[in-house]
Design a protein around this nucleic acid. Structure first.
Lengths: 334, 334
DNA sequence: GTGAAAGCGCTAACAC
DNA sequence: GTGTTAGCGCTTTCAC
């Protein structure tokens, strides 16, 4: 592999000049620059990014650390990050923790060791790792979680309001015994969405009943089991608010398995869209602006890199209730 | 940030000894090693991976280059790769090309510049980039495509047979006017699946009719449009074989939009499962062993890294036809 | 078993 | 505008 010295020798200039040409610095004589470019192409020279990274003591990578690569929420967000990063000359590393704090730690360690230029992370429940990144002055943006003990750029949606809208919509559609399947207790989004559900009930004069609440794992299988548990109750709910997309899939499947109809027997509103229009009945959901979330996170990251000492920003984006078939009982459909 | 020199000074040994301890080399006196470990922890020392990379002239990254991060086929495969890579001490970079050859080139360049240790790639149609990687002696495994002009480790499924099975199943279920929506002409999987479709027709004595074939883009929207085009024909097909999962979603949605029923009016078999069990009717598909594909690709990559001059292997895994509701017309269901 | 020292390929002072 | 040179932090001969 040709190095910058080989090119310099061939073009009869110094390595410094070659470096300047490679990096597009203006202050190089046009003739020299041309000679350098010829030499580079003659030798099929490719700069060694690792050497550059060492010298500059940071890389041209961003890392996105997420908990579930199978969830379209994260992949859509990732795509947005990539769309911002690539034109800016950064490649994006996707790290999938499967909600395992140990894996998260491993990735955060790797991130620091590899001198990653910036990190966008959706941390697992109690995450001291973000603090470590902040302490090491690695630019970080937290997405989808609000960390109470760490001052850091953050992008969220209004989980409370979204869940409240969804639940109120179910109430106003005539459902009365409304269950809630939320995520692991202590996980920010799970707690906020449960809180929104509760607030809607209480503001509409329906008593909050903890027996109608299930805590699952935000995955399809969890939604499946939680629904099973709800349906095996002597008095089954007539509607359910499910706090994420994957669990909604699982929950609705279970409703069908019991021979029940959606929305006639059980009304359903999920949280976060699934990008697939095929589902029947079409699911009512609290849509999150996933792409926007990613784009804002990427923009915040870029801003922090440009200005490391700026005040941390917390951005809360609105959700949008999309009413489709799964929450409109037959008698009200027309 | 503490360096290896700081640790050496504090432990009163040489940097070489610290390096040996960090890398777990055996030939270090136990007492010294202990002293070094203490110093490391005192100073909160973290090895600088970039410097190590430069010195070793390769990184501890693998890159997976795919065409669509929104397709569960690729994310499942990625997960498998990650599961092999991580215990082996590698982090995995996910590169999403959106089927854009330019983006692919950019990623291949970055891969080489960053001295990525190994690459798993599902190349776009005509890909000279893989040859470049091979020439540069970067360990590469190609997945989901057979490159005719490049000798390289490859993991495939038997596309021909899978498509043939699917189509024959439709024929035997009583469908006669069977359409095919495949991917972009020239793309390996698209061509092979079309060939399998054709072979089934001909072996069952049905004339192959090019008017029943549509070439789309392997994405939901493409399936949507292709189905629209098929349904606007004066004589509409009574079944369709769709050559990938995303297009199947789009196609079935369009069938519904036309007020037609699946499978009574139009039978459907897709290629590659979708992880959502919720779809109604449940889709008959040619299931690919996605996780296995990824695992084998990762294993081949590891083998190539260990033994750069081994003969390239081409692995072809079987598919499995999963007959569900979408291809069993009512009169035959019982 | 341990240390001294060279150098991976590049960039950025600094000198001219 | 261009060249000289000193490292970035680590690993790895090689000598002892």
């Amino acid at each position: 592999m040709a190095t910058i010295y080989d090119v310099a020798r061939r073009a009869e200039v110094s390595p410094a000049t070659v470096s300047r040409v490679v990096n597009g610095r203006a202050n190089v004589d046009a003739g020299l620059a041309e000679r350098v470019r010829r030499a580079m192409s003659d030798l099929n020279y490719r700069p060694n990014a690792v050497a550059r990274n060492l010298r500059r003591s940071r890389t041209s990578f961003w890392a996105v650390i997420i908990s579930d690569i199978g969830n379209p929420f994260f992949t859509a967000m990732f795509r947005a990050v990539q769309d911002v990063a690539q034109p800016a000359g950064y490649s994006v590393l996707l790290c999938n923790t499967d909600n395992d704090p140990e894996r998260e730690e491993q990735y955060v360690d790797a991130t620091m060791a590899e001198q990653i230029a910036g990190v966008i992370i959706s941390p697992t429940a109690a995450s001291p790792h973000v603090q470590r990144l902040v302490d090491a002055r690695v630019p970080v943006v937290v997405i989808d979680r609000l960390l109470s003990d760490t001052l850091v750029d953050t992008v969220l949606v209004d989980n409370d309001l979204g869940a409240e809208d969804a639940t109120r919509h179910l109430i106003r559609s005539g459902y009365r015994r409304i269950a809630c399947i939320t995520g692991p207790q202590g996980l920010f989004t799970a707690d906020r969405r449960l809180a929104g559900y509760r607030r809607a009930l209480e503001s509409e004069g329906i008593k909050y009943d903890p027996d109608l609440v299930r805590f699952a794992d935000f995955r399809q299988e969890g939604g499946h089991q939680a629904m099973e548990s709800l349906l095996s109750d002597p008095v089954r709910p007539d509607a359910v608010f499910v706090a994420n997309n994957m669990m909604t899939i699982g929950a609705v499947g279970r409703i069908f398995d019991h021979g029940l109809r959606v929305p006639q027997d059980v009304g359903v509103v999920g949280f976060d869209d699934v990008p697939w229009s095929l589902l029947r009945p079409a699911l009512s959901t609290v849509a999150q602006p996933t792409y926007e979330l990613g784009r804002h996170a990427a923009d915040l990251l870029a801003a922090r890199m440009a200005e490391p000492d700026r005040e941390p920003t917390v951005l809360t984006l609105p959700t949008e209730l999309k009413v489709r078939q799964s929450s409109i009982p037959r008698q009200r459909q027309d």
